[in-house]
Amino acid sequence: MRTLFLIAPLALFAGQSGAQQKAAAPQETVSPEQKKLDELLERFNQKRADVLEAYKKATTDDEREKIYAGMPGEDFIPAFKALAVEVKGTDAAAHAWMWVLQLDQDRSEGMTEIVELLLSEHMESEVLADLAGFMLFGSQTLGQGPTLESLDAMIDGSSKKKVQASALFTKGSILLNAKLESSRAEGRKCMERVVANYPGIDSGRGTYADRAAGSLFELDHLQIGKAAPDFEATDENGVKWKLSDYRGKVVVVDFWGYW
């Protein structure tokens, strides 16, 4: 059983397959630049599928390690970059720049410049919702000050609800982890705004509002020393049970998966 962190960068772009992008716009005619992006994504996904297929067939850990090293990643950066430059200013360019950011594990591609470019040329693109999500990890490279400035620029500058929600959620997540009490209080306000003003907007793993509510719930009820909030659940046989059924016992609540 492996540990799974959903917020790992790999999961970020795994949720953004070309198929999903195509499915989002079924009726529109595909622009030439979008077609180029789709072709590149198809090459990327094909290589990924090939590696995973080979990985499944491998019999030793040594073999697996070697095969896994062949996963598409930074080797695709030049192609995404070239495409972004070629189709400059289009939505496909914004997507391509996002891929450069996400594939750039060693942060050598000038994140500050790419972020500035996305903010100045693509403020109305929904891709900025991905950028805002990405900034949760990117803030280490970008610095907290510039990260928060960029997020504010998106909250105030984009007319897209999804971009606003994503930027506000990331801002809240960053501030809730801050040392300063006043920053944490501001983080709480961000999350409260997401819950109140942005219901029903999908983030790729639940809605922003539900995730913000989760953050607030954790803050208020799931800290050490707090009474564990009761919940009702159904087991694999359809039998309902509650956490409070186990009062009087020492209990381990284990969120797990066998993957």
Binding site: L4, I7, G214, F217, F231
Partner: peptide
């Protein structure tokens, strides 16, 4: 979602 779990276990 309610318990804000983003890593497993």
């Amino acid at each position: 979602t309610k318990w804000n779990v983003s890593g497993w276990p």
